[in-house]
Amino acid sequence: MSISHAPPGPREPDISEISKQGTQHGSQQGPRQGADLDLTPIAPASSRRTRVPRSLRRTTGPLLLLALWQLLSTTGVLTPDVLASPGRIAQVGWDLIADGSLPGAIGTSLRRVAGGLLLGTVIGVGLALASGLFRVGEDLVDAPVQMLRTVPFVGLIPLFIIWFGIGEAPKIAIITLGVTFPLYLNVYAGIRGVDAQLIEAGESLGLSRWGLVRHVVLPGALPGALTGLRYSLGIAWLALVFAEQVNADSGIGFLMVQARDFLRTDVIVVCLIVYAFLGLLADFVVRTLERLLLQWRPTFTGR
């Protein structure tokens, strides 16, 4: 901190008042002897811990839920046209993998997400760099982006279909749009949030403008960028679901739409599980990136 703290003015009155209070207090109460104190033991945390491993305890809940579901299905309380039984879902899932329709659909959907993510990252980060690093860029870019951001991107699907037809383009465009804004906002905020004191320190070390950007601004914006990436991945899946359910002839969303028409709740649940796993996978990727890139953070807790 560059703000200095010289010693404040004379403190005499304060101190003498406190010490006066102290002596009054002492003379009224008198020193207490330890004999009449009620002591309670502070047990070490380890001795109170149960013996069941944490991982086991954490899986118990979901397993119980699964068992209950199976029970409701076999007793006929839960009919297949409402929700298929876990056993049935496993069977159908296996069949879908075996006949190649599920891997094919996942491949198609992954390609769409990857395409949208790539485009959205390039555009979002590019715009954020332009407006974060240059005054002119900020004036030109920030206001329009902040305005566009308020438009719900799924609302643009009809327009995109008119513009891009019904092929891959509108789907990738909708994912791109969904991904761009969270990345833009977080990278921009990350750049602007870099500690001014560190920038000043960099200047005092003789860094050039580009050196400052490379060694101070960009690394400082990295946590924000990764937060943006995490949001973007979440939104990418959401955008995928929307894009594929509106019109598609392939992909996971298409499988679901088809299943809906034939009341196949088992296939729908399989697709939902796939979505969930892909989401988990994306989260894992971001976590790994954070572990690799953010080891320096004081708040970093991974190892």
């Binding site: 000043e200 005092s204 070390l205």
Partner: peptide, 25 residues
């Protein structure tokens, strides 16, 4: 000339030795 501030102002994303070399020609 060189400056040392009240707060050390080390770049948290650089190891100590890289901080020391930062900005040297």
């Amino acid at each position: 000339k060189a400056v040392a501030f009240q707060a050390p102002r080390l770049m948290p994303w650089k190891k100590v030795w890289r901080n020391v070399l930062l900005g040297l020609p």
